[in-house]
Design a protein around this nucleic acid. Structure first.
Lengths: 253, 253
DNA sequence: GAAGCGCAGTAACATAGGTTAGTTTACCTG
DNA sequence: CAGGTAAACTAACCTATGTTACTGCGCTTC
């Protein structure tokens, strides 16, 4: 089995505890959800297609996926990354059709949640539901920060910023250690994420490498100097809304 | 009194009816909220400041405001426009500090809603609450589309796209008629919205003018050919999630 | 109605990033 | 192990957009 599909049991609880104190009952409720029947998808597979009816909330359990939107002429913008423990579109029961697609980047495992699940959490595990809302607001804040990234930052800044953000997010769920993590993303995909051409992404990574900030080699990203990288990126982790310890963690790679 | 501060009584109901059928009781509940004590702010005033505790949801009643975020070196990205009938950050009780600011662009009038209001709407006017969630999801979709805009579209496409979107949104609340609307935004602000320099915004508007697509003169925008403009912009209104008639409306300026 | 100011418009020049195209490397497949 | 393919890398060249700097207009203020 692909390493990407391995289940990490308490990864979601770990993330949510950055936001709220969860009771043992909350954790157990989470655990029950986490163990449900899951679905897998191979890389490049569309998990959700633009135009489809939403059909429920996906809870990502393992692997990377991304949300993207295509223009009529084939240009593609990647809008967000879904990492293990992320929820795709809390609340999207409300809409009739998806306005974007979601694609697996690695082999992916996820489980489906329905409106009933959230109703029952709201009444029975309000604290947990509260944490899920928090997570949802953070996802919105990340989307805004990507807007800032594309609108204001130069190529180096943009890439550096993306790497800082991914590092922090992965660290929170225990998937980044000692300044390194798996980055299963081609340069073409990176390009569609940061709004640059693939060629320029390559140049820019080279630049970052030559400044001894990071190295990306064979899907493994190593950050040599997180402080320096975040200062190049003008990275301010406030938008990730981590609790004090989390923010501190972000400050020291 | 500034024309910007005039209250338009059923503007919010008009918008929400694009999403859900509201009962007379829903409309009355909305109306009661709409009549509450309101606050005004002069142009350029920060209504919300980055770092502040959230302090409740603002319902915009009149005038234009924008959400923005600044980088440490002074660059500014405008993240969204708040038009009359828009809610700032449904659900933001959950966060501790704002990660962005909100500024009035014109004189602005708004009213504050608390968590209690939403609790009571959830139990007593679920259909209305549903419509508010819809509106919130549309706001998220708009944020994503801005990401696409900045990441993939050229200068002309970007500006054209912004104008298309504003036209449709304003039309939905009855503030755009016959292809024209008030656009109380300086070119510098436009520049910070679309991630271009002010000089290039000027050039690009000239370009659009010379193609006989739109004219922006003294805060008044006239769209001469919405079809052509949306095709230049690669504008697809699906992300605004209007009901069938609304989408149709968007298609014919 | 003169002075001052913010905003829009333009021209001339500079540069970040895009494009095309070709090479290398790693990996997969038979 | 040969051949094929996707991804990364590089060089040379091109262009969209940024920068600087100046002009003129339409308000406001006294």
């Amino acid at each position: 089995m692909s390493k990407w599909l391995e289940r990490q049991p308490d990864l979601l609880a770990r993330k949510l505890e950055h936001f709220a104190r969860l009771s043992p009952e909350d954790i157990e409720a989470l655990d029950r959800i986490w163990r449900r029947k899951s679905v897998t998808a191979p890389p490049q597979d569309d998990i959700v297609r633009q135009g489809d009816p939403p059909g429920g909330v996906r809870l990502m359990q393992a692997g990377w996926a991304c949300r993207y939107r295509m223009l009529a002429d084939g240009r593609r913008q990647i809008l967000s990354f879904f990492l293990p423990g992320d929820l795709c579109d809390l609340n999207n029961f409300v809409l009739r059709r998806m306005d974007h697609s979601v694609m697996a980047l690695t082999p992916v495992r996820y489980t489906m949640l329905g409106a009933e699940d959230f109703d029952s959490l709201t009444t029975r595990r309000p604290r947990l539901m509260h944490a899920l809302w928090w997570d949802n607001l953070v996802a919105m804040a990340i989307q805004r920060e990507w807007t800032v990234n594309l609108g204001q930052r130069s190529a180096v800044e943009r890439l550096a910023h993306l790497l800082c953000e991914l590092y922090v997010r992965l660290h929170v769920i225990g998937l980044a250690n000692g300044g390194a993590f798996d980055l299963p993303i081609t340069q073409v995909e990176l390009a569609d994420t940061v709004g640059l051409s693939p060629v320029h992404v390559s140049r820019t990574l080279k630049d970052l490498r030559e400044r001894n900030l990071v190295q990306l080699h064979r899907g493994k990203l190593e950050i040599f100097d997180f402080q320096a990288l975040s200062s190049v990126a003008l990275f301010r982790p406030d938008y990730l809304h981590l609790a004090a310890e989390g923010a501190h963690l972000a400050a020291n790679a």
